[in-house]
Design a protein around this nucleic acid. Structure first.
Lengths: 159, 159
DNA sequence: GGTTTCGTACTCGGATAAGAGCTGTCCGAGTCGGAGAGG
DNA sequence: CCTCTCCGACTCGGACAGCTCTTATCCGAGTACGAAACC
């Protein structure tokens, strides 16, 4: 059980896009060079963020990606859900009612499985923490001057 | 990103072992029949729980598995860690310092990456919820009479 | 009848193959910018 | 000199392979029981 690498990429890209706050969209190639990532695959992951509304894309020359909404309205949960899918981490297959164990007790199965409930409680705590943190919070917790350095660095790339 | 199926199996098996509280160890075949699971693979997953000390095993005839310690001392975190591995869900690859972006700022990298910190906060909340729940809690939250039914069902299987 | 010995069957344990999902790559559709010709 | 047209290049978007990890399976090592032979 491991989180996909694209989540780290997506969060760093969102943070960078928020910091530089460029007038023009930022193409994939720039971000891939910035972080030394495989351009094609990064592109694929950014597309998933566009489908979720986290980013917006512009085709053609001078095109690229920009934030789909303001940084304080992009939660980490949004990014994780967009990149890892909306499915629950824990999937209850109702094994309690399979096999010999569950033949004759239909009334009890009206309530959800206790094991699933317990694990989902942890998963909800995880999702809640992710939903409480926004890209704006990431910007605020960064060392001072980080945004300025990002802008300068990006200006050096474009020029 | 999905949790392995073995976690559900392991938790249900621990709960069942705690309920029936048999004098003899319970072999894999019984548990596999109980939940209608592939016996060989269930066996492999139970071995992982033995390596973690959650279960203890007895070889030979009349052998099998039993709980390695009391139910109130087996947390859901123990089971998940045993079956999914001890690695963090989110792995920070330090992409901030890779590529063009991180060449000239060595002082800043002394502090951990803000993105990683934010995601790890959520992961810690998840682990904490898992660690706060024990197998004994699962037993307590089950409908009354569940333990008795499990014992009767197991007696019918053995006899 | 009691005891010893042997064989058998059962269980765990780890090493060995298929399948799914993540990672990585490619090419096509669409679009903007600029060069060049014409007025 | 200004405007219109056309060409070219750049970017996103989705479809196509390689690889790691999960799932699934098998066979070997060890052990307790039970039967049989022996005392």
């Amino acid at each position: 059980m491991r989180m996909g690498e694209g989540v780290e990429w997506g969060l760093h890209c969102c943070l960078t896009l928020a910091w530089i706050d460029a007038d023009r969209p930022v193409p994939t190639a720039r971000l891939a060079t910035w972080f030394d990532l495989p351009p094609a695959y990064l592109h694929k992951r950014l597309q998933a963020l566009v489908r979720a509304g986290v980013l917006s894309s512009t085709p053609g020359p001078r095109g690229g990606f920009r934030l789909g909404r303001r940084p304080e309205q992009i939660t980490l949960m949004d990014v994780v859900t967009a990149l890892e899918g909306p499915d629950d981490v824990f999937r209850c297959t109702e094994i309690r009612r399979r096999g010999e164990g569950g033949g004759a007790l239909p009334r009890e199965f009206a309530r959800p499985c206790g094991v699933a409930t317990a694990v989902r409680r942890a998963e909800l705590a995880w999702r809640r923490e992710l939903a409480d943190q926004t890209v704006a919070d990431l910007m605020a917790s960064a060392p001072p001057g980080a945004a300025e350095r990002a802008r300068r660095h990006y200006a050096r790339m474009t020029g």
